[in-house]
């Protein structure tokens, strides 16, 4: 992934003169501006905007799609990041590790006192190896989970609970972006229908202007001959 500055460089497909109307691409740090350009190119190529208003909408659709991708990627990444902690919690219960608890301290929360830096617990060590896709660690985790008739769904559920607030916010942003993209697509449909109707009317006018009424008497008298019948343009 390319590392970008605060304000991303304008996409290659945007002329500098039109930057005031389209703005810079909404690429954040850590996002691939080349992928954005590719998306813009592919959408513009498929839609083929017929006027500047359609170009604006096209850009809107691309920006909103990019935003939706961003939120979806972020949700997946949050799940992935939260999975080891969630797995540690599940394994701690499975490995029957009893946490040291202190008592007799009225008014204080239930605290685990440890002198100095706490050494990693066995399940933390195991999860660390599991996260690096160590085959032995994966096998051990699978066996432990199977012994309790558990699946990885429980880990993902725990990860969801841990990240619920973040995921809910991100999901709301994605929903807003999707709603706006759908609204833009509806507007393109409506605009093209108006444009198509105007085109139809224009074509009809042009055809009407070209249309000529053939005098039937002339056609009868010239029947069988090669002569072209006398034609009159219509009076509209």
């Amino acid at each position: 992934m390319a590392r970008n500055s605060n304000l991303a460089q304008p996409a290659t497909s945007i002329a500098p003169s039109r930057l005031s109307l389209f703005g810079p691409p909404p690429v954040l740090e850590g996002e691939d501006s080349a992928a954005y350009d590719k998306l813009l190119e592919s959408v513009s190529g498929a839609v083929k905007p017929t006027d500047i208003v359609e170009e604006i909408w096209c850009r809107d659709v691309v920006d909103l799609t990019w935003e939706i991708f961003r939120w979806r990627r972020l949700t997946t990444a949050l799940f992935t990041a939260a999975a080891p902690d969630a797995l540690t919690g599940v394994l701690a219960a499975l490995m029957r590790r009893k946490t040291t608890e202190t008592d007799g301290m009225a008014g204080l929360p239930n605290l685990d006192f440890t002198m100095g830096l706490r050494p990693p617990s066995p399940e933390e060590k195991l999860v660390k190896k599991w996260a690096t896709r160590n085959p032995a660690a994966i096998d051990r985790v699978n066996k432990l989970m199977a012994s309790a008739n558990l699946k990885m769904d429980i880990v993902m559920a725990k990860a969801l609970v841990a990240e619920f607030d973040h995921i809910e916010r991100i999901d709301r942003l994605a929903t807003i972006a999707e709603g706006r993209r759908n609204a833009v697509l509806r507007e393109i449909d409506r605009h093209r229908a108006t444009f198509a109707r105007a085109m139809r009317d224009t074509v009809r006018d042009v055809e009407d202007a070209e249309f000529r009424i053939v005098n039937p008497n002339v056609v009868k008298s010239n029947k069988g001959t090669e002569e072209t019948p006398n034609e009159q343009p219509t009076q509209n």
């Binding site: 949050l78 992935t80 685990d112 440890t114 706490r118 990240e163």
Partner: peptide, 23 residues
């Protein structure tokens, strides 16, 4: 007195990656 585990486990580094954007 010994430091409670809750305090030892408190975040001390700035978040990175997806966590940072989420925060």
């Amino acid at each position: 007195a010994p430091i409670p585990r809750e305090i030892l486990d408190a975040p001390e580094n700035t978040p990175e990656g997806p966590k940072k954007i989420a925060f």
